[in-house]
């Protein structure tokens, strides 16, 4: 894959807020039909990185490249127009709107002419339902249903289907599985695989190593705003990745500590002292 031009690439991207460096020399790339998993504990700089990728913020230094060409996003709309779609944790954001209406927010299909152009509810519903069903969510069959009535996984799927329908080439998924149960999460992971199969470049942000390993081709671990590790699928085990994310202190050490404590304290785990 090294000879193909990455769809999206970061070269030594820095982001500082005044004297505070939040991101430090981040270099990443993601290819067509590939899932890049961005792992990191809370506060590692994942959210700041997303905001730079989707145009909400601009990097202080460094370059963002799309298809090998330097780009600078003027805002979220600009990034979206270039094919970068971001889906946030809770997916569908308009809980009291119908599936059809929320699918087409801002780009509503209309019929009629002049001042009497009306929102084409039937067409919007049909397209939205078809787009979601193509992703394997066959339970959604009525475009008039309110988004708030869908399950968390269905909302994520709807948001991803929407992004793909409107021509996204890079899909940024911000902790899509964090708030979901096991079944729902598996659902979303299937959708991620489907997006990948369709040739999208996916950036999957998570701190759940299991979920990352299920879909990822490429992994990057973020610690305190820097890329601490960058490796391919199969290069590292789950334990190694978890240890990396925790910042060096190995999970095994921690477990050994707790086990040792329990042996000497009648099987009670240590009390947490805040």
């Amino acid at each position: 894959m090294s000879d193909t031009i990455p769809v999206l690439e970061l070269r030594k991207v820095d982001k500082s807020f005044g004297p505070i460096d939040v991101l430090h020399e981040i270099s990443l790339k993601v290819n067509k039909g590939e899932v890049l998993c961005l792992l990191g504990d809370n506060g590692a700089g994942k959210s700041t990185l997303i905001m730079n990728l989707c145009g909400v913020q601009q990097p202080t230094r460094g370059d963002i490249l799309m298809d090998g060409e330097k780009v600078s996003f003027q805002g979220p709309k600009d990034a979206a127009d270039r094919g970068i779609a971001t889906v946030h944790q809770f997916g569908g954001t308009f809980p009291l709107m119908s599936i059809g209406r929320s699918f087409f927010v801002g780009v509503e299909p209309t019929k009629g002419w002049g001042p009497f152009k009306i929102y084409d509810r039937k067409r919007a519903n049909e397209i939205a339902v078809k787009a979601v069903q193509d992703f394997g969510i066959t339970r959604i069959d009525d475009g008039d249903r309110l988004v708030g009535g869908l399950s968390g996984g269905e909302r994520q799927s709807l948001a991803i289907a929407r992004a793909v329908h409107f021509g996204a080439r890079v899909l940024i998924l911000d902790e899509p599985t964090a708030a979901l149960g096991v079944k729902q999460a598996a659902h979303v992971l299937r959708i991620v695989n489907e997006a990948k199969r369709r040739g999208l470049a996916v950036i999957f942000i998570t701190h759940q190593v299991m979920h990352a390993m299920a879909v990822g081709d490429h992994f990057a671990v973020l610690i305190r705003g820097a890329v601490a590790a960058d490796f391919k699928r199969g290069d590292k085990t789950r334990e190694e990745i978890t240890d990396l994310m925790a910042g060096g202190e190995t999970m095994a050490d921690l477990e050994a500590n707790i086990a040792g404590y329990m042996e000497t304290h009648d099987g009670h785990p240590p009390t947490i002292v805040a």
């Binding site: 979206a80 308009f94 709107m97 087409f104 801002g106 509503e108 209309t110 152009k117």
Partner: peptide, 20 residues
């Protein structure tokens, strides 16, 4: 009208509406 859909979207989530 589309205008109406925008009003609902704006009231539902202003930030997402702007991003859209």
């Amino acid at each position: 009208s589309r205008f109406g859909n925008w009003i609902y979207a704006m009231g539902g989530d202003k930030k997402s509406a702007r991003n859209a």
